[in-house]
Simulated assay, not measured.
Amino acid sequence: MKKKISIIIADDHPMLLKGLFEELTENGYHVIGKAENGLSALELVLKLKPTLAILDVDMPLLSGFEVVKMATDKKSATQFIIQTFHKESSYIMQAKSLQIKGYLLKEDSFLEIEKCIKAVINKCEYFSPSIQNNSIENASSQLQKLQFLSASEVVILKYISKQVSTKHIAEKLNVSARTIEKHRSNIIEKLDLKASTNSLTNWAFINKNIILNL
Rank of each mutant, 00 (worst) to 15 (best):
75 K>N: 15
162 K>V: 02
114 E>C: 09
4 K>E: 15
53 A>D: 03
107 E>I: 15
213 N>R: 15
34 K>T: 06
34 K>S: 14
121 I>A: 05
55 L>R: 03
32 I>D: 02
211 I>P: 01
107 E>G: 11
22 E>S: 13
79 Q>P: 05
1 M>Y: 13
171 E>I: 10
45 V>G: 02
48 L>G: 00
203 W>R: 08
189 E>S: 13
187 I>K: 03
72 T>D: 07
133 N>K: 15
42 L>S: 03
146 L>H: 08
169 I>W: 01
165 S>F: 11
192 D>W: 03
94 Q>R: 15
167 K>M: 12
204 A>Y: 04
69 K>T: 11
119 A>M: 07
90 S>V: 14
128 S>C: 09
45 V>D: 06
80 F>Q: 00
211 I>V: 14
75 K>Q: 14
32 I>T: 08
73 D>C: 06
38 G>K: 01
96 K>S: 08
135 S>F: 07
61 L>V: 14
99 Q>K: 15
208 K>V: 00
155 V>P: 01
52 L>E: 02
121 I>Q: 11
78 T>G: 10
69 K>S: 12
42 L>P: 02
92 I>Y: 03
17 L>V: 06
116 C>D: 03
104 L>M: 14
163 Q>C: 09
7 I>N: 03
86 H>G: 01
123 K>N: 15
119 A>V: 03
103 Y>H: 04
170 A>D: 02
80 F>V: 02
33 G>K: 02
213 N>E: 13
76 S>Y: 07
52 L>M: 06
148 F>L: 14
97 S>A: 12
172 K>W: 00
156 I>W: 04
88 E>D: 15
198 N>Q: 13
143 L>F: 03
100 I>Y: 07
211 I>C: 04
65 F>K: 01
10 A>P: 05
194 K>C: 07
135 S>G: 00
1 M>P: 05
161 S>D: 10
108 D>P: 04
161 S>A: 15
6 S>P: 02
180 I>W: 00
176 S>D: 14
56 D>N: 11
186 N>F: 08
110 F>I: 10
112 E>S: 09
42 L>W: 05
98 L>V: 07
164 V>T: 12
22 E>V: 11
124 C>N: 13
46 L>Y: 05
1 M>I: 10
62 L>G: 03
95 A>R: 00
214 L>A: 10
213 N>S: 15
154 V>Y: 06
169 I>T: 05
152 S>Q: 13
77 A>Y: 08
30 H>V: 05
151 A>H: 10
144 Q>D: 10
198 N>G: 08
24 L>D: 01
122 N>M: 09
54 I>R: 03
39 L>H: 09
